[in-house]
């Protein structure tokens, strides 16, 4: 295990070391201590490295991640795993706004709660939130899955495209063009797979599925009043 303290090493030096690290399997993992809310910790990684961060991080932790498995044993600020391409990012605490924003792939697991705009403009990432999410989560979400085990805040899935949202609690309100859809056996199976990969056990019967009514993003003269 390589240990790096951010009290002694700058974030830039840490990220350079992580980017140059050999792929896990043959190489030991990395432990980062004393993050103290620093921004961009473990951002821009491209290799199959394992990184454990002990403490709370600031903005854009694990941003643009490819392949790496990053765990934060704490809370994180705005935009964790934003624009992630692949790999897995796990937050043991809570995440602030815009978690997983614009993510193309991989999995983001937030064991606590997520703030507003979780999964905004997601493009293929899978996000599993153990607790609740803030308002406007799944805003303009294009593809991928957003699983919210607790309650969802106001305007869930506003202007959503083809992403799928599962909510285990209740949604305070749905955004424009977001509707409840039937929970088919296929969707139950997909939800079970997402929860299993996130390491969470939940009662599938509590979950409801939401998605796009597809009235907003295809122009149709009958819906002109909605635009």
């Amino acid at each position: 295990m390589n240990t790096v303290s951010l009290s002694l090493t700058s974030v830039r030096e840490l990220n350079e070391q992580l980017r140059g690290a050999p792929d896990a399997g043959s190489a030991p993992g990395w432990r980062v201590t004393d993050p103290k809310g620093a921004h961009a910790v473990a951002a821009g990684l491209t290799g199959h490295v394992q990184v454990q961060i002990d403490g709370h991080v600031g903005y854009y932790c694990a941003g643009m991640n490819q392949h790496a498995a990053i765990t934060v044993d704490g809370h994180c600020g705005t935009g964790v795993a934003e624009n992630m391409m692949s790999g897995i990012v796990r937050i043991r605490g809570n995440a602030s706004q815009s978690a997983g924003a614009s993510g193309h792939g991989g999995m983001l697991v937030i064991e606590g709660n997520a703030g507003p705009r979780c999964g905004i403009s997601m493009k293929g990432i899978d996000i599993v939130v153990g607790g609740k999410t803030g308002h406007m989560s799944g805003f303009m979400a294009q593809s991928g899955n957003l699983v919210i085990c607790g309650d969802a805040g106001h305007d869930l899935g506003d202007s959503i495209y083809e992403a799928v949202i599962y909510v285990g609690g209740s949604a305070a309100s749905l955004g424009a063009d977001c509707v409840e859809k039937e929970m088919t056996p296929k969707h139950r199976s997909r939800l079970q797979d997402l929860l299993s990969r996130a390491g969470m056990e939940r009662d599938l019967d509590r979950f409801r599925r939401f998605g796009s009514a597809r009235k907003l993003y295809h122009f149709h003269v009958d819906h002109a009043d909605s635009y």
Partner: peptide, 8 residues
């Protein structure tokens, strides 16, 4: 505004 200010 951010946790950075609370860390110490």
């Amino acid at each position: 505004s951010e946790f950075r200010s609370l860390a110490d």
